[in-house]
Amino acid sequence: MSTMEGLIWKDIRMLAFYCRRYLLIALPVSVIFFLTGQESIAMVYHVIVVSGMITTLMSYDEKSGWNQYCGTLPCKAGQLVGAKYIMLLLLQVVLLGILAAALVGKNLYAGRPFFEGSGIFPLLFGMSVGMMSLILPFLFRLGIEKGRMAYYLVFLVSCALSGALVMVSQEVKVPTGGILGVGLVVLYLGSWYVSTRWYESKEEK
């Protein structure tokens, strides 16, 4: 666990160093979309911000030769991969936490119940974790440069699917939140497993 802690600590430092401007610009914009009722744009925006940060971390790891160096340290491939999956969840906590604070502030100002309109949060969480779970195995397998195509492809397919889901949900009964939640957990853990296997099987890191 301690090794993993070291890897996550490193990623947090990198995030603070390389993504601070990203955060400074992205967060206010995200909050504005969210508070002005443009939830669907806020959702896409949240997905872009999260995936952008994770891929930035991976890109710097690749460019600096960290991935190769890490192979000489007492770290397992699963730990290196796992650090990114845990970062994905930590980012959700931070970013959604900020959005929740903004929502509570807005509700307080308007004299409405604290968490009114918070129903979108599971969707924001699900969309970005789900999409990154689909993308990450390709990024670990192909590297950032070659994996970029997979990134765009999964992003477009996810947008199309979510659009279709919204249309279908008006006519057909879609699975309830519980089933979708279980599906998301399975997707996340399955993705972690596949990424670890694919990364282990890759020779030149």
Binding site: K10, R13, M14, S64, W66, N67, Q68, Y69
Partner: peptide, 11 residues
């Protein structure tokens, strides 16, 4: 120590 040391640049 490899030819390319490989430490994260920001640390």
């Amino acid at each position: 120590v490899m030819d390319e040391v490989g430490m994260p640049g920001c640390l």
